[in-house]
Write a protein that binds this DNA or RNA. Structure first.
Lengths: 226, 226
DNA sequence: AACCTGTGTTAAATTGTGTTAAGTAGCGAT
DNA sequence: ATCGCTACTTAACACAATTTAACACAGGTT
């Protein structure tokens, strides 16, 4: 599917060792965990309530000051109603009481990630990076990288938008009118000629890779061959 | 805020009466619940495992045949490891064992809905602190911190306001006119040039973090890439 | 072949940005 | 009051991004 989710585990007594499907950073107390949180980007945090220096609840509050969005799961030995509610009030996504099986914890983490990574997809919507032979194209950063020469070219906004459309329709015809209405809003004569100019620019950028080509489909549009 | 979430509750022994914040439909057995599910659109389903006619697990499987996405919470009297795992395997989002408090159930429902209704996140209040790669930015204090070097830079008012706007629109285009009218009130030529100068200043401040970039969108504005 | 329309490419023209440095105004300290 | 500092604005210059123009050629039609 994708790269491993980055997991912050704040826990002191026993190593849960969630190695299986996650890229886990273990911190032995609340302060270490807080420092670690600030230095990295995590997809999810699993916090033990009982910890030295800073307990899980206060840690969660500090994390929430920085980031309202990252999922938080509490682990606790206590099953007291008020503790559980307090956990959720700080914005927790789950609260698991010991003892629990490792499999259950993993399922619960995955259940949450399923919801949060989907949002990342729906927001971003599309692919992050495209591979075009020896080139990789990052439409977010508008950068085209020649992996062999280790050269990077910054693309302009229009170049990048057009190449992104072509990549999304790789090996299919990208219709002129569609591209014009998407990128230029209006599909009049001058914008159409402008687009021709940008096709030329893209061809120049990609000319080193013979396996990649932007071909014209007469009267229809363009097709990116990979 | 928004409209009440539509909740399907499949439960037989006692009426949980989740009326508070939800638009709840109660069904007394699994078959009724299944019929009800097909007739309506629900935001979330809460299913008791032990039910007449069709148990919660089979009901969940049937629901998943129709809809892979709707969140499902199981309620169960049993806390057997295998039952819990079986619940998650059918794609559950949570599995709550009795006895539990009504408040906890509501918190757990809300925790899931928070993730599935995207609007809550994007519309939600402003952040106190932003993470920008190795930097954290506190718009209240107007301080930009390099967490690795442990260096702090005081930002000026304009620098801070502009960076805050960019952060609020991270990975989206921040339109020039919008920023000008927000920060400079008037969007005349000179203020526009002034803004350019501040973009340069911010870029200098952030130049150590290559994963963060302020790129120009010609004729539109700027985009903060994180 | 003669024609029309669509495309490829280059270059000029126009408008938008990036950056540095000089200018101005406000403010607290001396 | 004046000095020194800071935030901010204005000016100046260089250059980038996009559009428009110009000309050559390609593809399909009659």
């Amino acid at each position: 599917m994708e790269t491993k989710a980055k997991l912050l585990l704040a826990e002191d007594d026993e190593n849960l060792g969630i190695a299986k499907g996650f890229d886990t950073d273990l911190f032995g107390d609340g302060e270490l965990a807080y420092t670690g949180f600030k230095k990295n980007e995590y997809n999810i945090c699993v916090l033990d309530i009982m910890m030295p220096k800073k307990d899980g609840i206060s840690l969660a509050r500090d994390i929430r000051l920085i980031n309202q969005n990252v999922p938080i799961i509490f682990l606790s030995a206590k099953n007291l109603k008020e503790d559980v509610l307090e956990g959720f009030r700080t914005g927790a996504d789950d609260y698991i009481t010991k003892p629990f099986s490792m499999e259950e914890l993993i399922f619960r983490i995955e259940a949450i990630l399923r919801r949060t990574t989907q949002e990342a997809n729906s927001t971003g919507g599309e692919q992050n990076v495209f591979k075009l032979g020896r080139f990789t194209f990052d439409p977010r950063k508008q950068i085209l990288t020649n992996e062999e020469k280790d050269e990077q070219v910054k693309l302009t906004t229009k170049e990048s938008e057009l190449l992104r459309l072509l990549c999304n329709n790789a090996n299919k015809v990208l219709e002129r009118n569609f591209a014009l209405k998407t990128i230029w809003i209006d599909d009049n004569y001058f914008n159409a000629r402008s687009m021709d100019v940008y096709i030329t620019k893209l061809r120049k950028h990609l000319k080193e890779e013979t396996s990649v080509e932007i071909i014209n489909v007469h009267g229809k549009g363009y097709k990116l061959i990979v």
